[in-house]
Amino acid sequence: MKEGHYLCVLGMFDEETNKLFNQLDGRLQDAQLKTLGFFQDDPWHFSLGVYFDLEPEELKAWVGQVASEYEPITLRFNHLGLFPGVLFVEPAFSWPLRNLYERLHEKYDDLHGDYEETSRRHGLFTPHVSIIFTYEQLPLAVEVMSKHFQPFYGRMSKLLIYEYVIKGDKSFAVRPVATIPLNKTLKNGEHHD
């Protein structure tokens, strides 16, 4: 891995769930708020792990193994939350999501996953889907979402490994490394859909 680069494992959603997040995004755009404008076609995600000093192929093999043990995960997105300068949607607690997170971090958490917000070691993981990053317009974004947000069910169906580069105090997307479906293999060798 090049210096200043890192890898992130993102939990990605199915098409129907992405449409629901796009609708929320549209409400913010209707209010003339500058939305996220993500870098990929399938933008809505959870950040599940951040890894420094780890080769992409090594992480890809591990994530592939973990993904083969899990079915797509149904979640109930039931509330809004705030971090400084961030409005997000958070799901109700889910054992399947928690178990996948714990399993993902079994191998590299202590060596490469020292990013506090996603590292198991720090215990700060909050699964969330960021809707908007803003300080100045956060009160307006909260007002818009409080009028339009209704709890909904969604489905996390795959894991994406993405490479980022750090420049100064900002991170920039470089390239997707791999998209791996959650596709539990049953005992007879078939896949569960």
Rank of each mutant, 00 (worst) to 15 (best):
K2T: 11
H5L: 04
C8S: 15
C8L: 12
L10R: 07
L10W: 12
E15P: 03
E16I: 05
T17Q: 02
N22S: 13
Q23N: 09
R27N: 10
Q29K: 12
K34N: 12
G37D: 12
F39N: 14
P43S: 03
F46V: 00
F46S: 01
G49A: 09
V50F: 07
V50A: 10
D53R: 15
P56N: 04
L59P: 07
L59F: 02
K60Y: 00
G64C: 10
G64Q: 13
V66Q: 05
A67K: 01
S68T: 00
E69D: 11
I73F: 01
R76N: 13
R76G: 03
N78D: 15
H79G: 04
L82Q: 14
E90W: 05
P91N: 08
A92I: 06
A92C: 05
F93E: 11
R98A: 12
N99T: 11
R103N: 09
L104F: 02
L104E: 02
G113P: 05
R120V: 06
G123H: 03
F125L: 06
T126A: 09
P127N: 02
S130M: 05
L138W: 05
A141P: 04
A141F: 01
V144W: 07
M145G: 11
S146L: 09
P151A: 01
L159W: 00
I161M: 04
Y164E: 13
D169Y: 10
A173N: 08
V174Y: 01
V177I: 15
T179A: 15
N183D: 14
N183L: 15
N188Q: 13
D193E: 15
